[in-house]
Amino acid sequence: MKILVVGGTRYFGIPMVNALLTKGHDVTIATRGNAKVDFEGEVNYVTLDRMDSSSVKRALENQKFDVIIDKIAYSSNDVKTLLENVICERYIQMSTCSVYLNEHANICEDEFVTSDYPLVWMDRIKDYATTKRNAERAVLEYMAPSACTFVRYPIVLGENDYTRRLCFYIEHINNEQAMFVDDLDEAMAFIHEKDAGEFIAYLVDHPINGAVNGCSSGTVKISEIISYIEKKLGKKAILSENGDAAPFNGRKDTLSFNTEKAEKAGFVFPDLNSWLYKLIDYEIGQIIK
């Protein structure tokens, strides 16, 4: 299939594109021209500014794709500038589990119904959840519900995580710096970068209509992450309300997501424990080598 990938040159976009190439798809990557990646196969590139409608039109006018994978649609206007200027049979948007209005365990996709959300045309704002809800809703102005997929992920972790959220805990414990953790017993779900990329690629050949959750099975408490790092480093965490705010703060309850919809389509996510502690070991090795 002929596939346009918008934003596929960093983080889990790389295993996603490699998985598409392995399946023999014809992949074109739309970028601002700042990055080229040594993928495991040949890709085409187009240069555009996806926030500028005229730029998108110049780059993609009269082109038609079987599938568009949009990894960087943050706002409704982002969607508009793209979909008003290119034709596709199917559209896959990387959304987020932040669209859900209430946090609890085992959240199902129907707890946020895209079509019910009142659309506001808007640029990117600080309220990430509102921005992404509108990004989902905007798609339905251009695509039939049966022709689009919204992939909802929790926090993505991996060796290439440029936000260094997991490293925050390792560095603070290793350097004996105080950190503020608002709830040690909060339990969270995550997904590994490789699984995040490969699941989106899987959806090209195994379409799912509407929203679909993706995350590793199981949850982990922040206290368990800290305890593991303490044992590995032989140092105790310094916890203080006056310390640096930890990146996983702000959760109100155990937060996990139901993945039965993905599993019925044939994709099974690994258990969180199968990779999380290996990742912590890797990051510790990178920091103290």
Rank of each mutant, 00 (worst) to 15 (best):
Y100Q: 11
K235V: 01
K261H: 02
S240H: 08
M94I: 11
L140T: 03
P247C: 06
A201Y: 07
P207K: 09
D66Y: 06
A144Q: 14
C148N: 03
A211E: 05
E171Y: 01
D52N: 15
A35W: 03
A73P: 00
P270D: 05
L203R: 11
G250V: 11
F199R: 09
K261T: 04
I92H: 02
E198A: 01
M1H: 14
A201H: 05
N249Q: 13
A265M: 05
A73G: 15
N175Q: 14
R58N: 15
V17F: 07
I287G: 01
S76M: 03
I225G: 01
G33W: 11
R251G: 12
L48A: 13
E198Y: 00
P118T: 04
A105F: 02
E263G: 01
S216C: 11
P145R: 06
K80M: 03
R58E: 15
Y169T: 02
E42V: 12
L233G: 03
R137D: 06
V181Y: 02
S240A: 10
A189C: 11
G41A: 10
E176W: 07
N174F: 13
M179F: 12
E224S: 10
Y142L: 05
I107L: 13
A129K: 11
K132S: 07
V212S: 04
D110C: 05
H172C: 10
G41P: 11
A246E: 14
L279E: 15
V156H: 09
V79R: 04
M1P: 14
Y117I: 06
N134H: 15
I3W: 12
D195V: 12
L279V: 11
G158W: 06
N249F: 12
A265F: 09
L48T: 09
E40L: 13
F269K: 10
